[in-house]
């Protein structure tokens, strides 16, 4: 799938380029500004953590970066494609081929088995033998014995491992993770983040992670802080401290 990167994008262009991004939501009487004038570049293979308190706008930013929503102002360029200007269907195509997701609440379909959940993006991409690839991935995340279990029959950590397997199924060039350990206890969270980092390294994926967990953020090469909708990058000293 990596070969499917945009032919216009060479290895020197950043994976993500955000310019003058703002996002506002109309309320009944007022308008709520969630993001304000965000500029950002993320290089290929880089791992970036976006850290901030609840309500600081980090998940909204993630959604906009991934093309799940369109900004009120500004542009987002992902792997050479100007996604803020693409139609919904074009963005969907882009997500199918180049983007993976891991959510805080796992977002597994309760009626489907672990195997079927992982097969979902493969089927959407029209891949032949999606079950073989899904099996391999589930074995890789240590759930080879639990292929036919439904989410209800799995623990939180196991569910998140299924979600990680699903995220890597289509060999994305960029992975977006929204508080991937937010619903897990420390030890499980640690194991899940180990797995995420390891797979990320193995596949050379660009990782963009939203978290309020400083320890998890510290495992990324770069940390960005978001507060009241504004993004700032700490200096080297700040990020070490």
């Amino acid at each position: 799938m990596n070969q499917m990167t945009n032919p216009n994008a060479d290895h020197h262009t950043p994976m993500l380029r955000v310019t003058g991004l703002s996002h506002r939501v109309p309320l009944e009487t007022d308008t709520l500004t969630i993001l304000q004038g965000v500029n950002l570049e993320i290089n290929r293979g880089e791992s970036v953590a976006i850290v901030g308190r609840s309500g600081s706008g980090k998940t909204t930013l993630l959604g906009l970066l991934a093309g799940l929503d369109t900004p009120s102002e500004g542009s987002v360029e992902l792997d050479g494609a100007m996604i803020s200007q693409l139609s919904e269907d074009k963005r969907a195509e882009l997500r199918a081929s180049r983007v993976g997701f891991v959510f805080q609440s796992f977002q597994l379909l309760p009626a489907l088995s672990a195997l079927e959940n992982v097969m979902l993006p493969l089927e959407l991409a029209g891949m032949d033998n999606p079950d073989r690839r899904a099996r391999e991935l589930l074995e890789r995340v240590g759930l080879g014995e639990r292929l036919n279990h439904t989410p209800r029959q799995l623990s939180g950590g196991e569910q998140q491992r299924v979600a990680i397997a699903r995220a890597f199924a289509c060999e994305p060039v960029v992975l977006f993770a929204d508080e991937p350990t937010g619903n897990l206890d420390n030890r499980t969270g640690q194991a899940v983040s180990d797995l995420l980092m390891a797979l990320n390294r193995e596949q050379g994926t660009t990782l963009v992670m939203v978290t309020h967990d400083e320890h998890l953020a510290a495992r990324c090469a770069r940390q960005l802080h978001i507060e009241a909708g504004q993004l700032s990058e700490p200096t080297a000293e700040e990020s070490v401290s």
Binding site: A92, F101, L120, P121, L124
Partner: peptide, 12 residues
């Protein structure tokens, strides 16, 4: 919603 997130086109 999930299928769309995973890249399913609306028409599909």
């Amino acid at each position: 919603a999930l299928l769309r997130t995973l890249g399913g086109r609306q028409s599909l």
